[in-house]
Design a protein around this nucleic acid. Structure first.
Lengths: 206, 206
DNA sequence: TAGATTGTTAATCGATTAACAATC
DNA sequence: TAGATTGTTAATCGATTAACAATC
């Protein structure tokens, strides 16, 4: 089913295909129709899908029920993932209340902070624990993914703690790129860098 | 100074180089030292920089004061950019209070929402205006960049409004990819898609 | 069958890496 | 000068696109 190396961008596109298929509510979609809905080329749609199998019917297109189920399975979204939030500041609190996550099998079930005045309180009905409890709570609650929203000077430290607690996937919002143990996947979302990219585009234009 | 087409990833790396140079506090850094600080190769560091000019001294390395000033200039960060936030929900409020932005010449000076109960209140001392005022306020306040944190079903609409108000750069957090007028640059930050990428990595590992 | 669209191979395009002459 | 490191060219690697035979 799985052929050779898969370009990382393919995975992002699969998520996008899934969304537009879901919204279209049609029984069949051709690669050309998916292309129009996403602005990727139809060749790319077909190529991306064939990395994982043959889901289409020549002359007809793709059965969207099959395709939806297949993409969910490929992305590992046919199960629940427990998520911990580390760092309950402004951004962390917003992420804790963010509705978009729960939609696709993600559940933020634990939150941690170092500030004693926050520990013991609840945000969006999630109890905030002391960060010292992290390793124990990660194991006890079967946490798979950590969202890191801590100040930049402690990001590396917390990353190491998460790794030694057995976490294999981290979504990092701190404006540093922690160097993880090689068994750990870190995705960095750096808000300032994105704004800087926009500034670059603007500066070039004018 | 500017040679041919520049791969988009170069711009992101420039932001990262800037940060590590700033933190190192050294007078000179070689491409090899920058490589060690960032985990990019030294060849890539040199190549990225020569897209924009010659900043180094053979046998010696890069004068960090010159390099910092040059990168700021390349990225267009040697000036101030006015930013508007559209959509003051959980995420929007957090972005409005986010300290990281102001550091690099970005200032969120306007915020908009459609909810009458929010209009007229302040978050982080920024007045929340009615979204109907958008076009006028964007012009009056010389806004360059919009951060979009609205529900997905209005994202396209607001994007169009922003475009017709003259905005050329949008950082979009809504979980759809608005199709912008071609004069407008949109960068999409999609939190659910990032979590889905992590789920994919985890599913492959186990 | 005729028409449409897939799956896949080959061609193209673009970005990264290696190597080294030029230079401080 | 000898040693170090840049800037740049050429080689490699990887991802996207085009084209079309296979197939429903």
């Amino acid at each position: 089913m799985l052929k050779g190396k898969i370009p990382p961008a393919v995975i992002t596109r699969l998520s996008i295909y899934y969304r537009v298929i879901l919204e279209s509510r049609k029984k069949f979609l051709s690669s050309d129709e998916i292309s129009k809905l996403t602005d990727f080329t139809s060749a790319q749609v077909r190529k991306d899908l064939t990395y994982f199998g043959q889901f289409g019917i020549p002359g007809k297109g793709y059965n969207t029920d099959l395709l939806k189920a297949s993409i969910l399975n490929i992305l590992g979204l046919d199960r629940r993932w427990n998520v911990a939030l580390v760092g309950v500041g402004n951004l962390g609190s917003a992420l804790l209340s963010y509705k978009g996550f729960s939609r696709q099998g993600f559940k933020i079930s634990c939150a941690f902070d170092a500030d004693p005045s926050k520990v013991g309180t609840k945000v969006n009905s999630v109890l905030i624990r002391d960060i010292k409890e992290l390793a124990r709570a990660v194991r006890a609650n079967n946490i798979h993914i950590a969202i890191l929203a801590v100040p930049k000077d402690v990001a590396q430290n917390v990353t190491d703690t998460l790794a030694s607690a057995g976490i294999k996937a981290i979504l990092n919002f701190a404006p540093v790129r922690p160097k993880p143990d090689k068994s750990v996947t870190v995705l960095n979302i750096d808000l300032s860098i994105e704004l800087e990219r926009l500034a670059y585009f603007l500066a070039r234009k004018s």
